[in-house]
């Protein structure tokens, strides 16, 4: 029996956390895993913090992830990644989008906090999404980076995307996912970033 893999996806309302969670979990089902997903709807969707928890393996009981046990935290921006930091297990990996946080409340105030985690991968999700022509696709770049980290092949996910993403958005979003998976410069270990 393989142990469960636990993932937290965190962002703010309207940035596609729920969409990406849906693709991820449907793809995992297609791959034959037992899957549980926890989301909270309602009040939390009015522009505030939004997160989802996804767990997969041979047999999953709890839809909630215990503190200190998440294998991956996917932060759609730096603030939301840090909010869930204590859920990461010691050997777990943070995947953080380098989002443009220019509001004074956030700017330049939280970057240093990532040094405490053993494994951090910075992803230029926002920049890459812009290059593909749609800033809103940063969520798919992040999904791509996660799938890459999990060691999955692109093919399954292409068909999952085709099934669950509306036709008119498919091309852009699949491209963003692919760039998230494949591009070397996307994944930079934290040490390199601090040298920049």
């Amino acid at each position: 029996m393989t142990a469960a893999t636990s993932i937290i996806l965190a962002g703010v309302g309207g940035k596609g956390v729920i969409t990406v969670t849906n693709v991820l979990s449907q793809g995992l089902v297609a791959l034959g895993y037992d899957v549980k997903v926890s989301e909270v709807h309602g009040m939390s969707q009015r522009g505030g913090s939004v997160h989802a928890q996804v767990r997969f393996g041979d047999k999953i009981y709890s839809p909630l992830i215990e503190m200190g046990t998440a294998d991956y935290i996917v932060g759609f921006d730096q603030i939301e990644a840090l909010r869930w930091g204590s859920f990461l297990k010691q050997e777990g990996r943070m995947l953080v989008n380098l989002a443009e946080l220019n509001e004074d409340t956030y700017k330049g105030k939280y970057e240093d906090n990532f040094s405490r985690y053993k494994h951090v991968t910075y992803v230029e999700g926002t920049a890459i999404a812009k290059e593909t022509g749609n800033v809103r696709n940063e969520n798919f770049v992040m999904l791509g980076a996660l799938l890459q980290a999990l060691g999955f092949e692109f093919d399954v996910w292409k068909s999952t995307m085709e099934k669950y993403i509306k036709k008119q958005y498919q091309e852009d979003s699949i491209l963003s996912l692919l760039r998230g998976m494949r591009e070397q410069r996307v994944a930079r270990e934290k040490e390199t970033v601090y040298e920049l």
Partner: peptide
């Protein structure tokens, strides 16, 4: 029992707001 956790970072809350 409890698991070892990374110490939490205080980040500003982002509560829901009117659109």
């Amino acid at each position: 029992e409890e698991f070892d956790c990374y110490e939490g970072v205080q980040v500003p809350p982002r509560p829901p707001r009117l659109c």
